[in-house]
């Protein structure tokens, strides 16, 4: 079998993989930010809510999170009379991965926020900024820059975790590879999986390059 045929077949699954990656990362970041905000509240009930979410999600394999999303969400929606059985599988994949990765992003955001020098906030207040502007102009950008290496690692981890959606029968790059291997009775299995590994690696290289560019832009910002 020609290498080009393998590559073209696997790349047919790339749009699903990338859509899953981008959407999951976006929603996981929203969940992570919201949970970090809740966690840092002085209100013990809100803070405990975030801790419970963290505890459950971090103690559960991502594969299981996808299965819970795929089998559990339709039942949950059915309770309020909404039938989501026919919804696209990517929806369940995005929910499972977002909930699963949100907890790790929460930890990245929260630890970064806590490590911003307190003097930066005080300086912002001392020049007359209100709490909102001190947060938006000074604390949040610095939190983001501190969290960046962890965010990069988590995004790379998410690239690989997208392959887990095969359990729901979703057709992504990994699923295309196993299909192609099965169609050829496993004869070219190794070659197919090596090419698949290289494709995932290329995505990771691209992400690393993007983050490197970002770091280069902010190379003089030492936090």
């Amino acid at each position: 079998m020609k290498v080009s045929k393998v590559i073209v077949t696997l790349l047919n699954g790339l749009p699903e993989t990338l859509s899953l990656l981008v959407a999951s990362f976006f929603f996981a970041s929203l969940i992570g930010l919201s949970m970090a905000w809740l966690y840092l509240r002085k209100n013990p009930i809100l803070s405990d809510l975030a801790k419970i979410y963290l505890g459950i999600v971090r103690g559960t394999p991502p594969l299981l999170m996808l299965l819970l999303s795929y089998f559990g969400l339709p039942k949950l929606f059915a309770l309020v009379g909404i039938n989501i059985n026919d919804w696209a599988k990517i929806f369940f994949g995005i929910v499972g991965l977002s909930v699963g990765w949100g907890a790790y992003l929460e930890e990245a955001f929260r630890s970064a926020y806590l490590s911003v020098d307190k003097g930066q906030y005080e300086a912002a207040l001392s020049v007359g900024m209100d709490v909102k502007h001190a947060f938006l102009q000074i604390l949040m950008p610095q939190t983001f820059l501190i969290a960046l290496p962890n965010i990069e690692n988590l995004l790379i981890g998410l690239v690989k975790a997208t392959s887990l959606v095969y359990v729901m029968g979703m057709v992504d790059m990994y699923s295309k590879a196993t299909d192609l291997s099965n169609q050829n009775q496993g004869v070219y299995q190794l070659e197919i999986f090596i090419i698949l590994a290289l494709l995932y690696w290329l995505i990771v290289l691209l992400i690393e390059w993007l983050f490197r560019m970002f770091h280069r832009y902010y190379r003089y910002v030492e936090i």
């Binding site: 005080e122 300086a123 020049v127 007359g128 209100d130 502007h133 902010y218 936090i223």
Partner: peptide, 28 residues
């Protein structure tokens, strides 16, 4: 009022000119 700190506390994510202009924009 305004304060000058022992450890300077310049905003690390802002350039020198931004450090000076931030208070004027967001405080005044």
């Amino acid at each position: 009022t305004a304060m000058v700190f022992q450890n300077y506390n310049l905003f690390k994510n802002k350039t020198a000119i931004e450090n000076i202009s931030e208070g004027l924009i967001f405080g005044q």
